[in-house]
């Protein structure tokens, strides 16, 4: 009897230690990134680094404002394309899908998650870029936009990222919806609500935390995606107002130039990573705050 109590205590300790692993990992990542990035930021000047819009490392000008804006643009684009389609598709998967075709479809979405980003990149480059270029030319001839752009653009990157975050959103949202007890749904139907009304007014609100988690994961993937984006976004380090023009993202900046950078340039790239990291922190904190607000309601 005593040994059993001991085992209970011991295992509780093991669970606790395991739970500490993620805290430890974040702490380590913080320490190593900040130790390598902050000195460079100091040398360049915090304000100059964050608000400068000229990035010309060869002439010692390091301003990443255009990249910050770029990352925001493509992430917003990815959300606009990916989130509605993702959530509606998971509604289809959870509530509408005939049993016979469910398995292949489910396998297919899982497959989508396993396709390496390089493939998405080439797919974008060969298939989507020419389409967007033609689209730009049509708008240009119609006089809607001033420049047609060459296809490597914010729009292209948003479309591809929108596709890339689909499996993340579908996976989490669907399992969250399935976890809602079925008597919620049956009860709503019994009260005379239509199937759609029951889904959107009862099940989705009940599965809210899972849905939000899926969207946050998706946003994380969109901001962090590198290999596919650098192939299709054009990577021009400047601010633009048109979604048909190219842009460079923070991640793109790191991967593209890390290879040949030395000295201050290299440190400035690690500092770019730090900025990216701080962004993620801000997003997570605001989501956590939002959630707390919602819980208190």
């Amino acid at each position: 009897m005593k040994s059993k109590a001991w085992t209970e205590k011991f295992m509780q300790g093991v669970f606790f230690v395991a739970a500490c692993a993620s805290v430890l990992a974040v702490a380590l990542i913080c320490v190593f990134l900040f130790a390598n990035g902050i000195p460079a930021m100091k040398e360049i000047g915090f304000i100059k680094f964050l608000t400068g819009d000229v990035w010309r490392p060869s002439s010692e000008q390091f301003g990443i404002l255009s990249m910050i804006v770029g990352s925001l643009y493509v992430t917003a684009g990815a959300i606009i394309f990916g989130v509605p389609i993702g959530i509606l598709t998971s509604v289809f998967m959870a509530m509408y899908c005939p049993k016979r075709i469910y398995k292949p479809l489910k396998a297919a979405t899982e497959l989508l998650a396993g396709i390496p980003s390089v493939i998405y990149g080439f797919f974008g480059l060969v298939v989507v870029v020419p389409l967007v270029r033609d689209f730009g030319n049509v708008l240009y001839r119609a006089g809607i936009v001033e420049k047609a752009g060459d296809g490597n653009s914010i729009l292209t990157a948003s479309l591809i990222l929108g596709i890339m975050i689909l499996p993340t959103i579908i996976g989490t949202t669907e399992s969250a919806m399935r976890a809602v007890p079925s008597h919620y749904y049956q009860g709503s139907l019994a009260l005379g609500a239509t199937k759609e009304r029951s889904i959107f007014r009862v099940i989705i609100p009940a599965a809210k935390s899972g849905v939000v988690a899926g969207i946050v994961l998706g946003i994380g993937r969109a901001i962090g995606e590198t290999m596919a984006v650098i192939m299709i976004a054009g990577n021009q380090p400047r601010i633009t107002g048109s979604i048909l023009q190219g842009i460079r993202t923070l991640t793109g900046n790191i991967v593209i130039e890390m290879g040949y950078a030395t000295g201050l340039h290299r440190e400035a790239l690690i500092a770019t990573g730090v900025v990216l990291f701080v962004f993620i922190l801000i997003i997570n904190f605001s989501v956590a705050l939002l959630k707390r607000g919602a819980d208190h309601e």
Binding site: L125, I230, M231, Q236, P237, R238, R248, E257, G259
Partner: peptide, 15 residues
């Protein structure tokens, strides 16, 4: 600054 940038030879050729 309007130049597209890539770090990849095959992306350059494909583009």
């Amino acid at each position: 600054l309007d130049a597209q940038t890539t770090n990849n030879t095959s992306v350059m050729m494909t583009t």
